[in-house]
Design a protein around this nucleic acid. Structure first.
Lengths: 333, 333
DNA sequence: CTGAAAGCGCTAACAC
DNA sequence: GTGTTAGCGCTTTCAG
């Protein structure tokens, strides 16, 4: 199974130059006379020579490959982040190795170790919960890592996020001004840094600022059916406005309400915190905190290219602007 | 930037054995005495040795990496296929390099060439339109390729699909039996093999079989807004039942109808041909041809592992069973 | 069961 | 500008 038919050596022989010269031509090194370059190029074309990136990687210690760590491929939130990453990666000629870690077959540290063993030049981490072992792995390696859509407080890992506290407060305010006083927050993993350090504190602070004593935090609501099933509890608890971190959970709550014959937003206002496609196609369309997911991915990847190049990066903890998109799931008075 | 701290050589020296022995231990070769193995393992652990996959790849000519070619990361259809692929890849310890090709920055052939240069052991191709140049590249290489969710008629590339003709006919029948006689078909790329060779012919055959003369084929309807905008034309053309290849287009049509004050399914029946999450969360929920996307990806990846291993594969053109899921966008009488 | 040695295909000093 | 020469870190015959 001889994958490699023609090597740099074949080109060199055929063009009557040394391997080094062929290498220079392939890598766009300018120290080659035009005639030499042309001759080499001609041979390359004629022989259909393609450099073996694995050999290049071993010799140069750069693989032009970056690793993406993502919980779930089928979650549009991550898909849109990934798209931003992918476009910038393409621009800078990096390939992407994608690893989804919600799978139980392999532990997160193993997945990351596998990425590192492949000698990726950098890693973008998008999961929202950095385990200690993962952090350890990130600290042991000198491969640059950027967090996208998540943060970490124990280390100084570069990150690209939005101002979650401000965004959530604004969303809660919107509902409060619509007359909703029994506000709730629905999150996935309560230990995810974004939730434990920003979203939940913002919610608690809001209650305190408005002298609301009833606190309703629902955790571990991770998908559509979790949201769908949660609705009856919301009713029981008299909740009239809810901010939900995941779009699919929000849609679950919405559909459950509709199926129960209730009115959204009159009986229950819903704000979701991501704004993927799914939030905009349901009716009533969901009011969302529109995170610039594509841009977040793009900015994270751009930062990573600098880090991989040992360039100066002035600000390694970037917050991008978000937008509170008022749609039909809030009264917006 | 010395990524590699400890190499196989360090382990060998420390364990007082040869590199070859360490290599055997790392690769689970049984020709090592237990005591030797234990000693080597101990050193590996102590030194935190991790094999350099790039060097392994160069020496062994196997990278345990497969390439995925996909048009768009944010399309749930491909995301669900990819998830099936990913799970099986993980099972067989392959990493995945993902390449999205709807991007205009790089031509499809270049993207694939880049994948091949990285010496991937195999490729899974999910786009629905194989250009001549792409086919050429696939023929020139001896890297195995499997098509998932698409087919090709000019070559004998292995593929995993469903019986598109049968599925579409069944869907058309459903609407016909509901009394809808002015049926339409909405597709994305009319030149995609699946459309030109299976879906559209199935539609035409259906009309012929039922002596319907009015043919309504709408092409290049690729996303939500395309679908949304198409609706008025459907009204103009008196269409009362439509089969749509893409979920997002179908949802666009649905919402457009609702916004226009029409009733689905009474005024217009809709069947969509993919069944991603988006089709089930809208109201009325869409009747779908439920393709087993996850399984299709998984089966494709499994087939690829065999091909990469030079194992016998009895059937290289697999058709998986689909299901016609009757929901609220058809009367189902 | 273990070791020696020859590469895998390429890059990167270093000479000239 | 161009060629020579070491490797990069590992696998894989081939001996023994």
């Amino acid at each position: 199974m001889h994958k490699q038919e023609v090597t740099i050596y074949d080109v060199a022989r055929e063009a009557k130059v040394s391997m080094a010269t062929v290498s220079r031509v392939v890598n766009g090194n300018n120290n080659v006379r035009k005639e030499t370059r042309d001759k080499v190029m001609e041979v390359i074309k004629r022989l259909h020579y393609q450099p073996n990136a694995v050999a290049q990687g071993l010799a140069s210690k750069r693989t032009t490959t970056v690793g993406l760590v993502v919980p779930d491929l089928t979650n549009l939130y991550f898909a849109e982040l990934s798209k931003g990453i992918d476009d910038i990666a393409l621009l800078y000629k990096y390939n992407i190795i994608i690893t989804s870690i919600e799978n139980r077959l392999m532990k997160e540290e193993q997945a990351i170790q596998s990425l590192l063993n492949k000698q990726v030049d950098g890693v973008i981490y998008m999961s929202n919960r950095l385990s200690d072992k993962t952090l350890e792995a990130f600290e042991r390696t000198n491969t640059p890592v950027v967090l996208a859509g998540t943060k970490d407080n124990h280390t100084d890992l570069p990150s690209v996020t939005i101002d979650y506290k401000k965004a959530d407060t604004e969303a809660l305010n919107l509902m409060f001004n619509d007359g909703k006083k029994n506000l709730a927050m629905v999150v996935g993993d309560p230990n995810a840094v974004v939730n434990s350090e920003y979203r939940i504190p913002a919610y608690k602070q809001f209650l305190k600022d408005h002298n609301i004593s009833e606190e309703h935090i629902y955790t571990n609501i991770k998908d559509y059916s979790d949201g769908y099933n949660l609705y009856s509890q919301l009713v029981k608890d008299g909740v009239d406005g809810v901010i939900v971190t995941r779009d699919s959970s929000a849609v679950g709550i919405l559909n459950s309400a509709i199926d129960a014959g209730r009115n959204v937003p009159e009986d229950l206002e819903i704000v979701t915190a991501s704004a993927t496609q799914i939030a905009s196609v349901v009716r009533p369309a969901l009011t969302t905190i529109k995170q610039p997911l594509y841009d977040m991915g793009a900015v994270a990847m751009r930062m990573l290219t600098k880090l991989m190049n040992n360039e100066e990066v002035d600000d390694t903890n970037i917050e991008l602007p978000y937008e509170l998109l008022k749609k039909q799931s809030t009264l917006n008075q």
